[in-house]
Computed example of a mutant assay.
Amino acid sequence: MNPRPDGFARRLIVLGAAAGIALGVWPADRPRRIGYISFFPRPSPGVVPIFDAFFAGMRDQGYEEGRDYVMDWRHTGGKPETEGFDAHAVALASDGVDLFWCVTTAAAMAAKRATSTIPIVFSGVSDPVTSGLVSSLARPEGNLTGLSAVDDELHGKRLELLRDLLPQAREVAVLWMPLVATHRTELTQIEAVAPRLGIRVQRVELNRVEDIVAVIPPLARTGTDALFILPAGWHVYSSGELVAAATQARLPCIGTERYHHAGGALLTYGADIAALARRAAGYVDRIFKGAKPGDLPVQQPNRFELLINLKAAQALGVAVPGSLLLRANEVVR
């Protein structure tokens, strides 16, 4: 009997594996590959809580990195622009990753443009419907699902906290990025609530970390009383520089994500995005076991954090009311 050529045998193996993946059953003899797109290389453990939470969530589901899955981490070399995300997403899809995990809207959109078949799980994105990631929260359809950080009343609550913290504040600069689709909706929500609290809103574009030195210092000379920071992907790694520039300009910072708190923002209120990342691992597990992403409803946050930095308050000469300290989930002293 003549043996089949090696090349033919290899093609059969590849085709068999592909068929298994299409049916939702991954080969048991290799780790699953999870693609991730970032601005920066993978951080060391303990540096960025959201990543530690995801890996902990994977362990909760019985997956050990290296044994059961590997992270294929692609990054733009520290550049805050998202132009490179599409190229990385296409490359990951071509290389045959089994699933994308995304923590920014820009990364999830790039993955969506790159593939309509490879599952995409996002966690902590601002508003997946407004951004066009999914058609609805209940029935996302297609190859995407995950966890959203959106809450329609969240920005109003943040402004109320700002008023409690800085009762004399009259003008607040909202830092935003025009290219982030959800920022326009969030700005509209903020501007609708602000007059009721006696606050004027000044829109201030801040697109890149390189722009901080040109944008922040002049605000201190225009009557601005505080900065309200809308979330952006590059803030995960550069919020410290942003907050330091604001502190030097004597401007209190109100943050929306835990990484703003880690960067030194005076007050931060938002969804617990680390908890969302940990919960995302549950969706990864269900998809690896055969579930279709489009059948899994997008989950919303069930835990919000009030984080206060008393060191920042002291540096700025701000007296934090005891009522806020009692409500805080975490206080840096």
Results as ranks from 00 to 15, higher is better:
residue 2 N to H: 09
residue 3 P to R: 12
residue 7 G to M: 08
residue 11 R to T: 11
residue 11 R to G: 05
residue 11 R to M: 09
residue 14 V to H: 05
residue 19 A to V: 12
residue 26 W to Q: 14
residue 26 W to H: 15
residue 28 A to E: 04
residue 30 R to F: 00
residue 39 F to K: 00
residue 43 P to T: 00
residue 44 S to L: 15
residue 55 F to V: 03
residue 58 M to K: 12
residue 60 D to A: 04
residue 61 Q to E: 15
residue 64 E to D: 12
residue 66 G to C: 03
residue 66 G to S: 10
residue 67 R to W: 04
residue 69 Y to W: 13
residue 72 D to E: 15
residue 73 W to Y: 03
residue 74 R to Q: 09
residue 76 T to W: 10
residue 77 G to V: 14
residue 83 E to A: 14
residue 86 D to M: 02
residue 86 D to C: 02
residue 87 A to N: 07
residue 91 A to F: 00
residue 106 A to E: 12
residue 113 R to T: 10
residue 114 A to K: 01
residue 114 A to R: 01
residue 117 T to M: 07
residue 119 P to N: 09
residue 120 I to W: 06
residue 120 I to N: 07
residue 129 V to S: 12
residue 133 L to G: 00
residue 134 V to E: 11
residue 135 S to M: 07
residue 150 V to Q: 12
residue 153 E to G: 14
residue 157 K to H: 13
residue 161 L to N: 05
residue 163 R to T: 12
residue 184 R to D: 14
residue 184 R to P: 11
residue 185 T to W: 09
residue 185 T to L: 13
residue 189 Q to V: 13
residue 194 A to V: 01
residue 199 I to E: 07
residue 199 I to C: 06
residue 200 R to Y: 06
residue 211 D to L: 06
residue 212 I to R: 13
residue 213 V to G: 05
residue 216 I to N: 03
residue 216 I to K: 13
residue 219 L to P: 11
residue 219 L to E: 08
residue 221 R to K: 14
residue 224 T to L: 13
residue 230 L to W: 05
residue 230 L to H: 05
residue 234 W to Q: 09
residue 238 S to Q: 15
residue 246 A to H: 10
residue 246 A to K: 11
residue 251 L to A: 08
residue 253 C to N: 00
residue 254 I to V: 15
residue 255 G to W: 09
residue 257 E to D: 12
residue 270 G to S: 02
residue 272 D to F: 01
residue 272 D to I: 04
residue 274 A to Y: 03
residue 277 A to N: 09
residue 282 G to K: 07
residue 283 Y to E: 13
residue 283 Y to Q: 11
residue 285 D to N: 15
residue 286 R to P: 05
residue 286 R to M: 04
residue 288 F to R: 04
residue 289 K to F: 03
residue 295 D to H: 15
residue 299 Q to G: 15
residue 300 Q to H: 03
residue 301 P to I: 09
residue 303 R to M: 09
residue 303 R to L: 12
residue 303 R to V: 10
residue 305 E to N: 01
residue 315 A to S: 14
residue 318 V to P: 04
residue 320 V to Y: 05
residue 328 A to I: 01
residue 328 A to L: 03
residue 328 A to G: 10
